[in-house]
């Protein structure tokens, strides 16, 4: 079984690595290509959800703590990146849903 100390260090390094990966993906994606940007955005949002789960489970330590609090926190980090992704993929739908009149 991994010690608490080792788990914290691995989580910390994992978070730094995921941040670097998301920046690298965004910087190397073709800014002029809409498809490339959207795919990069989906990857970045996935990384956000992953980072959120790492902090919630291992740094806050909710993995073995109160289940309901963990569920609410994890939902936040699954729903918001999903909304951001949907907003990027279907901007017209967001515009039509949030416009007054025709």
């Amino acid at each position: 079984m991994m010690s608490d100390n080792k788990r914290l260090i691995i989580t910390w390094l994992g978070l730094l690595a995921l941040t670097s990966i998301s920046v690298f993906l965004a910087e190397t994606s073709n800014a002029s290509a809409i498809t490339s940007n959207t795919i990069t955005g989906i990857f970045v949002c996935f990384i956000v959800a992953l980072k959120g789960q790492l902090v919630i489970d291992h740094l806050i330590g909710l993995r073995f703590a109160h289940r309901s609090i963990r569920r609410v926190m994890l939902s936040y980090f699954y729903i918001l990146p999903l909304l951001i992704t949907l907003g990027m993929v279907f901007p017209d739908a967001v515009v039509s849903m949030t416009s007054l009149g025709n």
Binding site: V23, G41, V44, G52, V55, I56, L59, M88
Partner: peptide, 17 residues
């Protein structure tokens, strides 16, 4: 940790995407 979690979302939407 909550402050860190909020930044985890703020950073990509403002600086990366």
């Amino acid at each position: 940790h909550m402050v860190d979690l909020a930044w985890i979302i703020i950073f990509p939407i403002l600086y990366v995407l």
